[in-house]
Design a protein around this nucleic acid. Structure first.
Lengths: 241, 241
DNA sequence: CGAAGAGTTGATCCAAGTCAAACGTTGTGG
DNA sequence: CCACAACGTTTGACTTGGATCAACTCTTCG
């Protein structure tokens, strides 16, 4: 990452007031233990910053405190597959070979990250065995999400894929920001991002979104998603009837 | 699972002689500890047995000792997405909500499984913290594999997907059975299995396989895969040039 | 205001799906 | 041991969902 993209890199004295605490593995440590054992630092990134790069080393584990992140794989010729969208409470670079990242990550909005040295996290696991089971849970959730994503891309139509993704993201965004007022959520994704996640082109994504909009199921413009008819969105996703 | 499909369900006195020991998380326990703490039992299944079912409880964690297993998701109307092919050393039902499986699993050949009660595995983690880190590693590997699989299905052509899958399986099969003589491996998959894993129909899978065969890159018949030209298989997979 | 990026729309193309029929293989029971 | 059934593979003809190419418009932001 470039120095200019980092607006702040500061130690953090306490974990007690962390915005993501209730959503994250660290909740199994007392706030003081978390701060003392993990010695987390804060990192603020501007939108667009690519802060993990394919093949590079990953000495730290990152927790998203605020903002949206995409992780993606790249093929030799530039084709791109978005693997995950990460938001508050989600963990990055946890379950990987720390010497060569299998994917890249980029901030989609301004992003705040909690940075924990991998070595400290492993030390903490030795002291609090409970912690490593919570980490297992985190990676497991990622794995199940990946399987659902794979099922979308492998076996669903374009319209179903889009409905499933928007349903998933609206649920996760609401879980991450329970104080926000439904049914409108900020969705800082372009149609290219959505297409790259679902194995579609931006043009076709546009047409399918137009269909969902014309059917009165949702509205999506100016980076704001509003689910107008959750029932029919679930139906379009192939989850009912 | 039906009683008739189970040919043997026996306690196992020692883990020291386990065929999968070198491939599995349990290698971080002394053989005697593994047997004593985990109290594994053996389960033998006939080909075709569906032994994990979508939505059911999963009180046990399973390790494949021998044979091939597929895990898959089902959509309401019968569309199927194969999520993983598991072989010797691979672990099933580890990182999941044990009250409702998110996928099903079926034996593709005769299969031997090592069955470990989830509760015992968690107890063992408390006694040997090292073990839970090894489990983390196992789930992480699954997750990275899922991301690669997703990238295939989302962004590769049919020919590339097939080349990538066969390359992956030939490497994994060789790692699981290092004593076997390359470059021929048994591949107990029908073209329908391959298609269901890659988001293709069996008919199109057949045509693409015929292409790879005609190009002299591989031979595949009577459940035996032979990689004739690894270089060009990698090229067809989009991994070089 | 102007430029760059994002969204929209139309015309055309093609990779993969669908449907259908024939052929091979495997395994089973009479 | 053969016959037949079930399943898997192969091939051909045709269709289609989504890609591609090419404008053009709308937003955003410096």
């Amino acid at each position: 990452m470039t120095a200019s993209s980092i607006s702040k890199f500061a130690p953090r004295s306490s974990c007690c007031a962390c915005e993501a605490r209730a959503l994250c593995f660290c909740q199994s440590l007392a706030g003081s233990d978390a701060a003392g054992l993990l010695r987390p630092t804060m990192l603020h990134l501007t939108a667009g910053t690519e802060f993990l790069r394919l093949g590079e080393a990953a000495p730290d584990v990152l927790v998203v405190l605020d903002g949206w992140v995409q992780t993606y794989a790249l093929l030799g010729d530039g084709r791109r597959q978005v693997l995950t969208f990460a938001l508050r409470g989600d963990v990055l670079a946890l379950g990987i070979n720390p010497t060569a990242l299998p994917y890249a990550a980029q901030a989609l909005t301004e992003v705040s990250l909690c940075v924990i040295a991998r070595s400290r996290l492993l030390d903490a696991c030795r002291i609090h065995p409970r912690l490593s089971l919570d980490l297992l849970e985190v990676v497991s959730r990622d794995c199940v999400l990946a399987y659902e994503h794979l099922t979308s891309v492998g076996r669903c139509t374009a319209r179903e894929r889009i409905a499933r993704l928007l349903l998933e993201l609206s649920l996760r965004a609401r879980a991450a920001y329970p104080e926000a007022h439904a049914p409108t959520i900020p969705l800082p994704l372009t149609q290219t991002h959505i297409g790259d996640a679902l194995g579609l082109t931006a043009v076709h994504t546009n047409r399918m979104l137009a269909g969902l909009r014309d059917d009165g199921i949702l509205s999506l413009s100016r980076r704001t998603l509003c689910v107008l008819d959750g029932q029919r969105l679930a139906a379009a996703a192939g989850l009912v009837g």
